Simulated scan of single mutants.
Amino acid sequence: MFMAIENKKISQIVIEQIQEMIMKGELKAGDQLPPERIMTEQFEIGRPALREALKALEVLGLVERRHGLGNYIVNNVESNFFKPLSLSFKLNNGNVQEILQLRFLIETFTVREAAKMATTEDTFRLKEKQKTMIEAESPHEKSQCDKDFHFEIVRICKNGLILSTFENASYLLENFIGQAVYLSYFTAEDSIDRIYEEHQNIINAIEKRDADLAASFMNIHLNNIRPELLHEI
């Protein structure tokens, strides 16, 4: 099942092999890995190196250790605290404009798909998130509601890869949205009421199943963000 290891850091190669097997479909969510004794024999490594690799895969959200049962392949990557896209962005000195470009790229597409695919229940959830944002008392609560509103639109389009990308950048998006809402909340000429109105326009377009109109309103919404006023993310 596994290949014997030579050179390199042993635990890293174990990680790479298991990741490659997942990519090839040889391992799937729910599959149980062989007992550690068998894996050390197949990899021809010691148990400490194997456990180091399994722990790293657990941190990545790919392996789960179940007490008394063994190690299983899982799909906890999206909910995992480890966000490689956000970390890479920071280490490469990314800027606010890049985050806005990512939002344009993803959200103008997903809002079109949402207009085509949204059910009555989907539009109801969007309305509820809009209502919760309006009723929220603090800028922090409002920014969380704003983020939830946009994530819900991405979820409606039912594209797992796009949602994973959006989720992976969640730290950056939360910070970005939080600052934008804060500015609107405390700046008279950039009232929070404008955000409410823009959200409502997007909801109405989705409810009408008008993809072009929905994309147009999303463009207006994102174009009204002033990245030059946002602090470094």
Results as ranks from 00 to 15, higher is better:
residue 147 K to W: 10
residue 106 I to V: 13
residue 62 L to N: 11
residue 124 F to A: 14
residue 24 K to N: 08
residue 43 F to Y: 15
residue 76 N to L: 12
residue 105 L to G: 07
residue 162 I to H: 11
residue 39 M to T: 04
residue 44 E to M: 10
residue 59 V to Y: 15
residue 195 I to F: 13
residue 69 L to S: 06
residue 165 T to H: 04
residue 45 I to M: 08
residue 2 F to V: 06
residue 167 E to C: 11
residue 74 V to Y: 07
residue 34 P to A: 12
residue 34 P to L: 13
residue 105 L to W: 15
residue 59 V to M: 06
residue 117 M to P: 00
residue 82 F to E: 09
residue 216 S to V: 06
residue 21 M to N: 09
residue 1 M to T: 05
residue 94 G to E: 15
residue 13 I to N: 14
residue 176 F to C: 10
residue 46 G to W: 02
residue 103 R to Q: 11
residue 109 F to I: 14
residue 140 H to V: 05
residue 167 E to G: 07
residue 133 M to V: 01
residue 170 S to H: 10
residue 66 R to G: 08
residue 36 E to S: 12
residue 97 Q to A: 13
residue 39 M to C: 07
residue 109 F to T: 09
residue 225 I to N: 03
residue 227 P to Y: 00
residue 12 Q to E: 15
residue 99 I to F: 01
residue 135 E to T: 05
residue 4 A to W: 05
residue 104 F to N: 09
residue 75 N to V: 00
residue 194 R to T: 09
residue 191 S to F: 01
residue 105 L to A: 13
residue 76 N to D: 12
residue 143 S to V: 06
residue 95 N to C: 09
residue 64 E to I: 03
residue 195 I to G: 05
residue 95 N to T: 11
residue 126 L to S: 06
residue 120 T to E: 15
residue 106 I to D: 03
residue 155 R to P: 01
residue 221 H to P: 01
residue 20 E to P: 01
residue 196 Y to V: 01
residue 163 L to R: 09
residue 178 G to A: 07
residue 71 N to G: 01
residue 107 E to W: 15
residue 225 I to K: 04
residue 226 R to A: 04
residue 136 A to D: 03
residue 75 N to E: 15
residue 115 A to V: 01
residue 214 A to M: 04
residue 125 R to G: 00
residue 37 R to S: 12
residue 174 E to W: 03
residue 149 F to P: 13
residue 143 S to Q: 02
residue 125 R to F: 00
residue 166 F to P: 03
residue 211 A to H: 02
residue 177 I to C: 05
residue 94 G to K: 03
residue 199 H to A: 07
residue 175 N to T: 10
residue 16 E to L: 07
residue 168 N to P: 01
residue 35 P to D: 10
residue 117 M to I: 13
residue 94 G to W: 12
residue 25 G to T: 05
residue 203 I to S: 05
residue 164 S to W: 13
residue 219 N to M: 13
residue 110 T to K: 00
residue 77 V to R: 02
residue 224 N to S: 10
residue 47 R to P: 02
residue 176 F to H: 10
residue 114 A to K: 00
residue 185 Y to A: 11
residue 60 L to Y: 05
residue 213 L to V: 02
residue 115 A to T: 02
residue 129 K to T: 03
residue 7 N to M: 11
residue 216 S to D: 07
residue 154 V to D: 05
residue 115 A to H: 04
residue 204 N to G: 02
